[in-house]
Design a protein around this nucleic acid. Structure first.
Lengths: 203, 203
DNA sequence: GAGATTCGCTACGGAACAGTAGCGTTATAG
DNA sequence: CTATAACGCTACTGTTCCGTAGCGAATCTC
């Protein structure tokens, strides 16, 4: 934890002493670790202050409210995951779903995901961040499907419609059980999805 | 709201005055309406007491804690949904997904679902109820798939594996947007899933 | 009717949490 | 070195919610 985009808004201006980037970074890291451990219900400013070593008053000086810090911290986790291109639909699927599998299996990711989605119903900012996060995570799927269409491996499709269908089985599996998803579980899904996309039978 | 199974544990015994079934029913109804409106965060005993007209102290006399009442209320929502048999895979899918669509579109169902799933991580009782609820809701899918195998419309499958793949696209769609799912959106999913199951091309 | 028990009401106690005030300390700009 | 502003600390208010105590009134069994 540390390679996120910490935007220090005022560090370019000449001031006696800008809001310290160090405090922001420590606070965001603590916030994220609390969020992944206990979900939104485990995220309190008292806890962030204690874990980060940044005083609660300073947290308010930087972000103004607990919610803003939480949304900012989640926003910092948005990152592009690589999209390998192997020239084969099933192999591409295996690679990307393997990546998503590791994300889903890490920590108490489940609880956080659910709570964020629930809370997003009452918080437009949070909803936007959550939307962006999900969109970024499924981007590789959209890309590999588009490539399969381009090379003629599968017939043309409505990309948005079909992406939902492709990620669906994986998401349903993650929702269904808190057990980690194994690599072996992915295989039947890949075959199902490849057939659904209209790919020719496996070589 | 009223056709749930309200089990009055002591109503068969001869006692001066049993815990009133009326109070239980009103409390459960109020609890459920609060849960569907505001999710778990909208569920408080004060709110249940106010909406149901049952005193908070009486709620404790019946259930002992807020959590027990909540789990009991959710347990009361478990009900079998009918499984039509039309003799055609795609038509069966259309019927069952149509049922699930209505459930998913009703009220603020989304938020409740997420919060319950998140809370289930820390509460075995709640997890059990949630598991049972999901299992009951997807039972028709398992049944219609089994029938399609039996009549030779699709090749034999691992039922659990494949059910996840079939419900997946629908669930992914529900998760993705808070907009109601339209009947038209189901069609591409049905075709995708039918192909995934190995059904012959549409007539 | 007599006795027992439930019900509703009001009022508490206690915990957790958001957010603020005040004050002394520390680091930076000039 | 000096002024300025951020920092950490402690303490506080206000709110929300769980869970409980005590009371009188209503109701059921016998």
């Amino acid at each position: 934890m540390g390679a996120y985009r910490h935007v220090s808004l005022r560090s370019y201006l000449v001031m006696p002493r800008p809001l310290s980037a160090e405090a922001r970074e420590k606070a965001v890291d603590a916030a994220l670790s609390l969020l992944t451990e206990g979900g939104i219900s485990g995220f309190t400013l008292d806890a962030v202050a204690q874990r980060s070593g940044v005083a609660k008053t300073t947290l308010y000086r930087h972000w103004g409210s607990a919610n803003v810090l939480m949304v900012h911290a989640l926003d910092c986790t948005i990152e592009r995951i690589p999209t390998p291109n192997t020239g084969d639909l099933r192999t591409d699927l295996r690679n990307v779903l393997g990546e998503l599998r590791e994300i889903a299996n890490s920590g108490a990711h489940r609880q956080m995901m659910f709570e964020v989605m629930a809370a997003a119903a009452n918080d437009p900012d949070l909803a936007a961040v959550q939307q962006a996060l999900m969109h970024e995570r499924t981007r590789p799927l959209r890309e590999l499907i588009q490539r399969a269409v381009d090379r003629g491996e599968i017939p043309p499709v409505d990309l948005d419609e079909v992406t939902i269908c492709v990620e669906g089985p994986f998401m349903a599996r993650v929702l269904k059980s808190s057990e980690p998803v194994t690599a072996g579980e992915l295989e039947p899904m890949i075959e199902f999805v490849a057939r659904g996309l209209g790919a020719p039978p496996q070589a």
